[in-house]
Design a protein around this nucleic acid. Structure first.
Lengths: 148, 148
DNA sequence: GTACAATCTCAAGTCAGGTTTAGATCAAGC
DNA sequence: GCTTGATCTAAACCTGACTTGAGATTGTAC
């Protein structure tokens, strides 16, 4: 094919990111990415979308919902192609999120030692369950709100 | 009501665990818990099921699927009511799992600093995506297998 | 100019982990 | 004995993040 390398077909974007074509179309529908259209209505992406899609996947792998990712991406400039500095800025948010999750897991681990470990395991008495402590609110799918 | 306190109705078990009645029925159907039946076919649970349900919820909050939890519970004795020591034994597995997740997150965090942080963000070049590294395979719902 | 792959749209299906609804039955207090 | 609330079963529905399928169109290589 050999197209101008700043413009990608959806298949090329899929190949570059490892994300299925069907998922990319879904992402566009959800507003995570945008596309230009060719004369024949085929999608055309910018090379910078590779980075954008990568970001989406990384954020998702950390448990963010598409809604969450939309929020994060909203902080990117709208008018121009994001620079490395732009990405660095929102990546910092993600890093903070990871830190928070590590802290939560560490607390859980400590309580597991002290509470389940001793055999007292009970939702009511054990501090492991606690409304404020939504650590495990498991991403998508089922509603997993602990309301003990 | 005041029933013999070793035997619980489904509503009582729900009250003691904070888990909805509908979820408890679903758990039974999936094999996570078992019930005796009253003359009129109403479910009767043992007090030890409180602990069992608590364990299920805690494990889920850590991202285990029901299938995973079934695997963990399989290590409990079948014939007798599990003792504190039994629970301690399988709780140790969970603790190991938490440790593994913390380690994964820590690695991700480090790579985020070095890779996204520098602006090179790309699925292909960035070590953040890596088939062996299924850290974010997000529990249930969508299939979130990274196959880059 | 034709074949064949890639793409298009839109609707429907999938999977996990439940919830909701309907209509019937059971249990407890008075 | 009756009423009221709890429970029963079975089946349908829900959300999130996609995938699959059908049928039509486009784009590219030869």
């Amino acid at each position: 094919m050999m197209r101008h390398s700043d413009i990608l077909t959806i298949g090329e974007l899929a190949a570059r990111t490892g994300v299925p074509v069907s998922a990319l179309r879904y992402y566009e529908q959800r507003g995570l990415i945008r596309s230009l259209r060719s004369a024949g209505k085929h999608r055309r992406f910018l090379r910078s979308d590779i980075r954008r899609v990568s970001f989406v996947r990384i954020a998702q792998s950390l448990g963010l919902s598409i809604e969450d990712v939309l929020g994060a991406l909203a902080r990117l400039p709208d008018a121009r192609t994001p620079t490395a500095a732009d990405w660095r800025r929102i990546s910092t948010d993600i890093a903070a999120l990871i830190d928070a999750r590590i802290a939560e897991l560490t607390r859980t681990r400590d309580r597991l030692d002290g509470c389940i470990g001793c055999g007292c395991l009970s939702l009511k008495h054990c501090a492991l369950y606690n409304p404020d402590d939504r650590m495990g609110a498991l991403g998508p799918g089922p509603r997993l709100v602990m309301e003990v």
